[in-house]
Amino acid sequence: MTGYAGTAKAGVVKEKLPWEPGSLNAPVHGVDPNGPTYLTPVERRLLTAIADRIIPSDELSIGGAEAGCVTFIDRQLAGPYGRAASMYMRGRFVKGTTQQGIQSAMTPAERYRKGLHELALFCQRDTGKAFEALPPEKQDDILSRLENGRIAFPSIDSRIFFEQILQNMREGYLADPIYGGNRDMASWKMLGFPGARYDYRDYMDIKNQDLGLAPLSLRDRTI
């Protein structure tokens, strides 16, 4: 078979500009409160306690849990990010050098499942209590030991687990509220980041001064 019409599955652009909005990896907005979730209630409780240590509530801003970081993470894990949709996941998985980076078949969602389980077991064994029940100083101590690789888990590299959590907590705290975190743009107010503004022409000549711009988000979370 030859001919042009048969190329139906290739987009054909000829003599006009075609457009299909959003054909580029549309974001998982997760503003839908009934959207898919991933974490179990037990995992959620543990992650909520972690969120408030990674981003504690203080005079600068509300804490990670109140800011919605756990909701953010839950929605990310339920979507393509959690499934490692963008990552190269073909085998074999062979341990390599540090320069070659992580070689693991585990997706981000699986890292949470394994890591949170290991952390819960560790706390019970080490302190006789759940992580959530420990005083903040003790929680911080455990988290720093994870960060520095001073706690070894059987089923997942504890440092990889910690870095995964740290990255996603910060994302939840710092990303646009449209994704379920950064409630009331709390982190942007703290940093003085004006958010989703698209025109600074009037401000470029005002140098080394506070521009006093209130932040804007893509969508107010109350809508």
């Binding site: 987009g11 652009v13 500009l17 075609p18 457009w19 299909e20 909005p21 959003g22 054909s23 580029l24 974001p27 994302e171 710092l174 990303a175 646009d176 449209i178 994704y179 958010g195 989703a196 503004r197 698209y198 893509l218």
Partner: peptide, 18 residues
């Protein structure tokens, strides 16, 4: 894919760091 600046990167779409 094909992309269209005015639609795929409109100010309400583009300003999304994540």
């Amino acid at each position: 894919p094909w992309v269209e600046p005015a639609i795929d990167f409109a100010p309400g779409v583009d300003t999304d760091e994540l």
